[in-house]
Nucleic acid binder design. Structure first.
Length: 439
RNA sequence: GCGGGGAUAGCCGAGCGGUAAGGCGACGGCCUGCUAAGCCGUUUCCCUAUGGGAUCGGGGGUUCGAUUCCCCCUCCCCGCGCCA
C-alpha cells in the first residue's frame, strides 16, 4: 500500500509513477475523491463524539453528587443516534477507500527502464560460458548482445523432458493421470540432485548470515492480503475448501507476514531470512506456455531470500540479494544474464526488479530463474511492520529474491550439463553431497 | 474433539460498571570532570492537529457510560482423548 499522505500532499508523484507504468491514473483520482469524503465524515463524527463524551462525564459527576440526570441522559442518547448514522456512512466510505488504496501500485524507482511491457526489459549483465548448438548461434548472440562467451555444442541438446523421461528420472504421464497436467513425479537420482541442491542452497544462505526458515505452507486471507494484493493474486492461489486457508505461492508471503503488526527495535535490523518451502500456483492464463516438462508447474520447492531493512538501506540490500543469487548460479556453473525489468512489467508490488535468466541450450533461450524485487515500504505498510527510529516509528523496507526454484534450476543443470549419451554431469559443488559425479 | 484456565501498551503487570495504577526497557532533556544514580518528559493508531477521536485478543449486545456484565469467534496454557 502506498502512503496516504503522498496521496494528500504530493499526488503528482503518483500520477507520474502511473504514467511511467503506462497505467491509467483514474485510480488515483478516485482515491483522492474517496479520501476527502472520508476525512470530512470523520471530522463530523469525531465532533459529535466529543460532545457526547462531555455529557457522559457530566452524568458521572451528577450521579456521584446524588442528583437527577434523566434529561441529560436523553440528550446523550439523541447524539448517540446521530453518531450511528455518521459511523455507518463513514465505514462504508472507508472500506471503499481502503479497497482502492490497496490497489494503487507501488511508486516505481526513477532508475527503472521505462517501457510499456517486457519488450523493454534491459539486459545489463552477462556471465558464464554458454553451450550453443550451431543453428542457434545467431539467436544466442542477439540475446547476449555479443557480450557473452560461448562454445559450439557438438550435438543437438535434448530438452529436459526427453532426457528425463528416457532416463526414467521423471514420470509426467502418471502425474497427469492422478493430479493433472503440470505435475510431476521425480525419480531416482534426480531426487537426490534436488535435495543436494536444497542443502547446498540453505548452507550457502546460512553462511551469508541469513536465518533459515521453514514457514507455514498455508496462510489465512488476512496474511495473504498483507503480503500481496489479494484481489489481484486470488486467481493464482489454491484455496483449502471449508477453511480460511490458502496454499502459499512462495515463502515470500509467510516470511513477509512473520512480523505482522510489529514494532521492531532499530538494532534488530536488518532481519535477513532464507525460506524453504513448496510453492503452489494455479498458473491460470498460462495455457499453452511451457506445457511440457517441469519448467512451469503447479508445485515446486524454492529457496527464497527475504530482508526487512531500514529505508536508507534498501537499495544496497537489493544489490546484495542479487549478488547472492549471482554467486549461487556462478557456483553451479550455469551461464546467465541479468535483466533490468521495465516499468510496465514490474507488477504492482515492486518498485524495482532484476531478473536472472539462465541459458537453456535446448530451448536456445534465456529464461527467468530469479526475480529480485525492492518493495520499499509497500508491503510493510500493509503488514504494519515498523521500527523505532530516532525520529519516531517508521515503516521498514522489504526485499525479496529467489535464490533457487528447484524445478527451473534442475532443468538448467540438466540442459547445460548433459552429455551426448543423455547422462548429466553433477555440478562440482554438489558432488560431495550427491556422492556421484554423473547421473 | 471434550473439560478447565487465560489474552491489558515494546515487555511485565494491577484494575473487574464512572472513563487505563505501577514497574522494566527504549528515546529525549536536566544535573554531573566521566560513568552511574537521581529528576522531568516521551514511548499504539487516526483526523484540516496548542485540539479532538479511537484503542484493554477480534466481532456483536446490554447501559447515559463496558477493561469490567452477556453472546459468538480466534489464539495460548493445563488435563483427557485421538494421531504421523
Amino acid at each position: 500500500m502506498i502512503d496516504v499522505n503522498i496521496l494528500r500532499k504530493n499526488p503528482e508523484i503518483l500520477f507520474d509513477s502511473q504514467k511511467r507504468r503506462f497505467q491509467s491514473d483514474e485510480i488515483i483520482k478516485e482515491a483522492i475523491r474517496l479520501d476527502s469524503e472520508w476525512r470530512e465524515l470523520l471530522r463530523k463524527s469525531n465532533n459529535l463524539k466529543a460532545d457526547k463524551n462531555k455529557l457522559v462525564r457530566e452524568i458521572g459527576e451528577i450521579i456521584r453528587a446524588g442528583g437527577n440526570s434523566d434529561s441529560i441522559k436523553s440528550k446523550a442518547s439523541e447524539i448517540d443516534r446521530n453518531i450511528g448514522d455518521y459511523e455507518t456512512k463513514l465505514r462504508e466510505i472507508e472500506s471503499e477507500r481502503d479497497l482502492i488504496l490497496k490497489k494503487i501500485p507501488n511508486i516505481v524507482d526513477p532508475e527503472a527502464p521505462v517501457a510499456k511491457d517486457d519488450s523493454g526489459n534491459l539486459p545489463i549483465y552477462f556471465e558464464g560460458r554458454a553451450k550453443v548448438f550451431e543453428s542457434d548461434v545467431e539467436g544466442f548472440v542477439a540475446q547476449s548482445m555479443g557480450k557473452m562467451e560461448y562454445e559450439i555444442s557438438r550435438f543437438k541438446p535434448q530438452s529436459h523432458v526427453d532426457l528425463l523421461v528416457k532416463r526414467n528420472l521423471a514420470n509426467l504421464e502418471s502425474a497427469a493421470m492422478v493430479s493433472g497436467s503440470r505435475f510431476y513425479y521425480l525419480l531416482g537420482s534426480l531426487v537426490l540432485l534436488e535435495t543436494s541442491l536444497e542443502h547446498f542452497a540453505l548452507e550457502f544462505m546460512q553462511k551469508k548470515g541469513f536465518t533459515l526458515v521453514e514457514p507455514p505452507f498455508m496462510l489465512n486471507k488476512q496474511a495473504t492480503d498483507g503480503a500481496t494484493d489479494f484481489t489481484a493474486f486470488e486467481d493464482t492461489l489454491y484455496k483449502i475448501e471449508g477453511e480460511d486457508l490458502y496454499l502459499i505461492a512462495t515463502s515470500e508471503h509467510p516470511i513477509a507476514a512473520f512480523h505482522y503488526d510489529t514494532i521492531l527495535e532499530e538494532n534488530q535490523l536488518p532481519l535477513l531470512y532464507a525460506g524453504i518451502s513448496p510453492c503452489f500456483r494455479k498458473e491460470a492464463g498460462a495455457h499453452g506456455k511451457d506445457t511440457k516438462g517441469i519448467f512451469r508447474v503447479h508445485q515446486f520447492n524454492k529457496i527464497e531470500q527475504f530482508a526487512f531493512v531500514k529505508p536508507e538501506d534498501s537499495k544496497s540490500y537489493h544489490q546484495k540479494l542479487l549478488e547472492n543469487a549471482k554467486e549461487f548460479y556462478r557456483a553451479l556453473g550455469i551461464p546467465f544474464r541479468i535483466v533490468d525489468i521495465a516499468t510496465g512489467d514490474l507488477g504492482n508490488v515492486a518498485s524495482r526488479k532484476f531478473d536472472i535468466e539462465a541459458w537453456y541450450p535446448a530451448q536456445a533461450q534465456f529464461r527467468e530463474v530469479v526475480s529480485a524485487s525492492n518493495v520499499m515500504d509497500y508491503q510493510a505498510r500493509r503488514l504494519k511492520v515498523r521500527y523505532r527510529g530516532k525520529d519516531g516509528n517508521a515503516y521498514v523496507h522489504t526485499l525479496n529474491s529467489t535464490l533457487a526454484a528447484m524445478t527451473r534450476t534442475l532443468v538448467a543443470i540438466i540442459e547445460n550439463n548433459q552429455l551426448e549419451d543423455g547422462s548429466i554431469v553433477v555440478p562440482k559443488v554438489l558432488r560431495e553431497l550427491m556422492g556421484k559425479e554423473v547421473i
